[in-house]
Design a protein around this nucleic acid. Sequence first.
DNA 1: GCAATATCGTGAAATTTGTAACGATTATGC
DNA 2: GCATAATCGTTACAAATTTCACGATATTGC
Lengths: 205, 205
Amino acid sequence: MKNISSKTISRVLLCVRTLESLMREGKITISSGGLARITGLTDVQIRKDISNFGKVGIPRVGYNIRDLKTVLEEFILRKNVIRVILFGAGNLGKAILKYAGFGKQKLKIVAAFDRDKKKSEKVINGVKVYPFEKALFLIKKSTADIGVIAVPQEASQEVADLIVAAGIKSIVNFAPVSLKVPKEVHVRNIDLTIEFLSAYCDASV
Amino acid sequence: MKNISSKTISRVLLCVRTLESLMREGKITISSGGLARITGLTDVQIRKDISNFGKVGIPRVGYNIRDLKTVLEEFILRKNVIRVILFGAGNLGKAILKYAGFGKQKLKIVAAFDRDKKKSEKVINGVKVYPFEKALFLIKKSTADIGVIAVPQEASQEVADLIVAAGIKSIVNFAPVSLKVPKEVHVRNIDLTIEFLSAYCDASV
DNA sequence: GCAATATCGTGAAATTTGTAACGATTATGC
DNA sequence: GCATAATCGTTACAAATTTCACGATATTGC
Ligand SMILES: NC(=O)c1ccc[n+]([C@@H]2O[C@H](COP(=O)([O-])OP(=O)(O)OC[C@H]3O[C@@H](n4cnc5c(N)ncnc54)[C@H](O)[C@@H]3O)[C@@H](O)[C@H]2O)c1
Ligand SMILES: NC(=O)c1ccc[n+]([C@@H]2O[C@H](COP(=O)([O-])OP(=O)(O)OC[C@H]3O[C@@H](n4cnc5c(N)ncnc54)[C@H](O)[C@@H]3O)[C@@H](O)[C@H]2O)c1
């Protein structure tokens, strides 16, 4: 398969989300132009992204929504359940644990860890919060696909090291710190401060 | 001034965050190579980004941390306080309200709104949560720079329309919905589902 | 059945973004 | 003071990404 760029992946996931929403509305087909109007992407971009995965469209008709969703998901997700492990059950971690929307997609939070005894040993929205000390042992037994870091910045590198040691290859990092990880491990940083400031700057600069 | 791309802005904000951290450590100067090692960017990219804003560096020495930070902030932030208005004081909204880190940067949450009577009329971390009905009136009086949407997806377009009506030009949208806004309004979408899935796909596809 | 038309898929052109190379400049050590 | 070395700023080059243009194809209406 061709190398799919990170930008393409984000756009395709946006399309998948939109296709799901169209399915819920009972729609059967959608054109690249229609998807473009909803998502804010361009029609050509959508067709080109889709063309990475084969020929799914029907000229003069567009795409069958269910088929397109299936094809896109098969190529980029390729698993029915993507297993997430969460570090830090503080303000942000709890919001993530309580969010029902992940399950509707293929994301499943399989465990959470917190160093604070008052927070661990609880169950939030069906997910058990374990004490941090047990993390390495438990993670190694149950392979996870993604590690999410929602701990204070001082602890974030230590947690990243543990995630790497457990053999997990994807990290989502909410701490405002640039993590050091081996190059085969992929980190996606979400620093909300930077996101907010970028939103402001993009509009004003 | 030249047109600064959105990517440059994100990188510069990352550098500013790093410079702050270096200042706290008591460092005085840093080279582009040093910044590159910490941030994961490349030294050339950093020098090129900085060159958008003038000549701040000293050959053979690098950059004075305080000076560089000042120059970068002056050019891209240009305000001492960036005022944020938050919609939705649910799980995510509360996490945002309780986060102390925004204030250390120049972000200030000036008001929050929630439709649920049980949540409004409270004060969280010094920020008052108002009932949603009062939003348009209150926002128009106190101009804000950014509107943050942390309401359920059904309500997100309605809230976006209100933010637009209040004359705010930047939106950060956490709802998994593509908003319709006039083209002069800038939307930054943060769909955590897509972020998590992207992190997984980037590492595996 | 056939012309008309909407839409797909795609190679080529244009634009944007990132990289490499290198002269210019300043501190350091002798 | 002068050679040396580190680092900046910038120009030229390369790679990635987006946009354009258009041929191919399936449906619709007559
Ligand atoms: N809340 C926000 O809106 C927000 C915004 C921007 C950035 N962040 C960043 O996200 C991270 C989490 O923020 P928060 O507001 O949830 O903080 P928080 O203090 O509410 O929660 C952090 C949790 O991590 C736990 N913890 C500490 N060390 C740990 C370890 N080694 N392993 C497991 N758990 C550990 C703490 O006990 C605590 O429960 C921070 O790095 C913060 O800078 C948060
Ligand atoms: N929590 C997460 O980790 C997470 C993850 C991904 C996406 N999201 C998205 O973020 C948004 C918020 O998520 P949440 O978990 O905080 O949901 P939540 O249900 O906990 O909170 C939503 C809040 O918005 C309020 N609200 C409803 N309509 C409103 C209106 N018109 N104006 C003001 N307030 C209104 C509700 O009363 C509620 O308090 C949702 O769109 C969700 O899909 C959240």
